[in-house]
């Protein structure tokens, strides 16, 4: 489904602030696969998503989605096939517009905008059903301003919007990190439900070792713009958060050491 070949991204190249956010990274994601990505702050996880979605252009390398080379297509065009949910609940929905208007905007996905009415009677049943699945009662508040909703509610709406028109790929960037534990649990449940219902291909960044072990088929650990290791198959099935934390820390010590060496 998704293939990255030797993708590199460098910010502020040639200045003292140069950051090699992605270094010759290659990744292959199969149809219907659910991958979790972990890694310390600044490892390049978000940059990986940005380069896949087109928010950041790769300096070199090639990105393929469903057999098509998308390396140079603009962000808004890639969005037809890629749904995204961010850590900040405010990013995924539009305050000042109602839930219905937000969903209508998401429903335009993949279609040219025209002078048709913005919210359509015909779509109401569809929205109602999608929201009903969440058991949050939001289907009765279609005309409420999104700005009035809690972070968890907004994140739930964002998930529904991102999956409304069945994208090929769903990118989740720590989308439960800003929520309280209860809300996070609900959003995770909603995520797996939506992913299974539409057999979506999902890549999910998380800082929770628990989530990384419980969700998906494969864990990827990123460090300094590279994939440090991945765990799949039998090993992944038996993986415990404690194991992951051990491997995570052994790696972190390594980087700290090399940081110290670099500075000396």
């Amino acid at each position: 489904m998704l293939r990255l070949e030797n993708v590199s991204v460098t910010f502020n190249a040639g200045t003292p602030n140069e950051v090699k956010a992605l270094q010759n990274l290659s990744l292959f994601v199969e149809d219907g696969e659910f991958i979790t990505v972990i890694g310390s702050n600044g490892a390049g996880k978000s940059t990986l998503f940005n380069v896949i979605s087109g928010a950041v252009q790769a300096d070199s390398g090639r990105i393929e989605l469903d057999g098509k080379d998308i390396s140079y297509s603009p962000e808004f065009r890639r969005s037809h096939d890629i749904g995204r949910v961010f850590q900040d609940p405010r990013l995924g929905t539009c305050p000042g517009l109602t839930i219905r208007e937000n969903l209508s905007l998401a429903a335009i996905h993949g279609r040219n905008v025209g002078l048709r009415r913005d919210v359509k009677k015909a779509e109401e049943a569809w929205f109602f059903e999608r929201l009903q699945h969440q058991h949050l009662g939001l289907e009765h508040r279609l005309d409420a301003d999104v700005a009035l909703l809690s972070g968890g509610q907004r994140q739930a709406i964002t998930l529904v919007m991102a999956t409304l028109t069945k994208p090929k790929l769903l990118l989740l960037d720590e989308h439960t990190a800003a929520l309280d534990p209860n809300a996070a649990e609900q959003v995770v449940a909603l995520t797996t439900e939506l992913a299974e219902a539409d057999d979506l291909c999902v890549v999910m960044i998380t800082h929770s070792m628990q989530q990384a072990c419980e969700l998906g088929d494969r864990v990827i650990m990123m460090n300094r713009g590279r994939i440090e290791f991945e765990i799949s198959g039998e090993e992944r099935k038996n993986l415990k958060p404690a194991d992951l934390i051990d491997r995570f820390h052994s790696l972190q010590d390594g980087t700290e050491l090399s940081d110290a060496q670099l500075l000396s």
Partner: peptide, 14 residues
């Protein structure tokens, strides 16, 4: 209207 509030989301909806 959405562009003025959240252009990131507008791009995300294609």
């Amino acid at each position: 209207r959405a562009t003025g509030k959240n252009d990131q989301m507008v791009r995300a909806t294609g």
